[in-house]
């Protein structure tokens, strides 16, 4: 525990804001989004890319969040 790494508070905040912002934008434009995303055909790119975007942004937020609260993997000896 003596050589503890610095907690990634800043990355957590940045990814958190970007993620929250993305959620806000999508849910704020709910009608337009659901309409466009379900047109089918090539419009399929919308939901797929959105899912990738969130897995990156929100996934990174989650990872940093768990680090900050101190939930980390067991260190291998």
């Amino acid at each position: 525990m003596s050589k503890e790494k610095k907690k990634p508070i800043l990355p957590m905040i940045i990814f958190g804001i970007v993620s929250l912002g993305s959620y806000f934008v999508l849910f704020n434009q709910e009608g337009l989004v659901t309409e466009t995303y379900t047109k089918g055909g090539w419009y399929a790119a919308f939901p797929i890319l959105t899912a990738f975007w969130f897995s990156f942004v929100h996934g990174s937020f989650g990872s940093n969040l768990l680090d900050v609260v101190g939930l980390q993997a067991k260190k291998n000896k």
């Binding site: 959620y23 659901t34 995303y37 047109k39 089918g40 419009y43 939901p47 797929i48 899912a51 969130f54």
Partner: peptide, 21 residues
């Protein structure tokens, strides 16, 4: 499924908000 236009992205994202953590 997305090509068929059946994904409700709102639900996908709500579940993801917790499941990614």
């Amino acid at each position: 499924w997305a090509v068929s236009g059946l994904v409700d992205i709102r639900m996908t994202l709500l579940i993801l908000s917790a499941s990614l953590i």
